[in-house]
Design a protein around this nucleic acid. Structure first.
Lengths: 155, 155
DNA sequence: CTTTGCCTTTGAGCGCGCTCTAACCCGTAC
DNA sequence: GTACGGGTTAGAGCGCGCTCAAAGGCAAAG
């Protein structure tokens, strides 16, 4: 069994494809080959590492749309799963939920919004790169401290 | 004039030195050579990019101790400045304020706590590295999206 | 039939890190 | 003197992203 994080890696980037998730992806994702087409909230939570609470919250604020079965229970198909993974990836890079919502809204509006989506992603990439530089600077300070402690107990 | 961010880089890592800030650092930091020994809150805010509100807040929660002049105004010496920069660096790498407070408390307790401080920094370094990997994964997804938009307007 | 456990909804609560407000004080410029 | 642009305090408020609680429904196991 892989970890939730590894599975996220495997699925990320594919949420917009209308085509069904490719078989090799399913293998990568460690899904049982006889995986039902629809997953429960508990399975999605287990798979992605999000809590069921968070998944319901995402739906409540309009970040996600999920169907229901006869009993009123949520049913997630493979595309929903891929979308959740994509959202998770954006969240992990600190994209605000409002921006993700906006992005997905653009997707729903169709091809005409592609340039805006591109711009949004480029801006996000720049932000990530700034953040990477910040973190590397912080890492340097931390390493400096660690080295100092290693060589000399006096701060 | 350098930016606040560049000045932060120059000062980071030196807060614990009891020695006065070295002259070459002062040059790096773009401080006027006749810099008074004590700075006002507005100067510190300008220098670090923090707001005066935030500086007061940090002091209120015990993260910082700052002296007062005759009129009751805060006066920051060079060591205080270096400490603020160090704190800022840790904050930028998402160290919780409570952990920074704890770390500075250990520093105040003296050399005996060096091993604990070392451990704390090592743990923090590991966290930063995890975060760097996460961000790089997110960057890959973002780049995938950008490439897709570049090659083909259809998502 | 009842227990058990997971599901549903709405709404409230929370932890973090600021950020702002109100009421007041200080020192320089006119 | 008085206006003005700083500073001071204690305390309240806020935005974000969850997280939990209450009250109840569904279905398989015993």
């Amino acid at each position: 069994m892989t970890t939730a994080a590894e599975r996220l890696d495997a699925l990320a980037g594919f949420f917009e494809n209308q085509a069904p998730v490719a078989p090799e992806l399913i293998r990568l994702l460690d899904l049982p080959p006889d995986l039902p087409d629809e997953l429960t909230i508990a399975e999605i939570a287990d798979f992605t590492g999000l809590t069921a609470h968070t998944l319901r919250y995402y739906e409540r604020i309009g970040l996600l749309q999920v169907g229901r079965d006869a009993a009123g229970y949520r049913r997630y198909d493979r595309q929903a799963l891929a979308r959740i993974v994509f959202i998770t990836r954006l969240r992990l890079s600190d994209m605000p939920i409002s921006t993700i919502t906006h992005y997905l809204e653009l997707v729903r509006q169709g091809d005409a919004t592609a340039p805006q989506r591109l711009a949004l992603m480029q801006e996000h990439r720049a932000r990530i790169q700034r953040r990477l530089r910040e973190l590397q600077a912080a890492l340097a300070v931390t390493d400096y401290k660690i080295t100092t402690y290693g060589g000399n107990a006096t701060p």
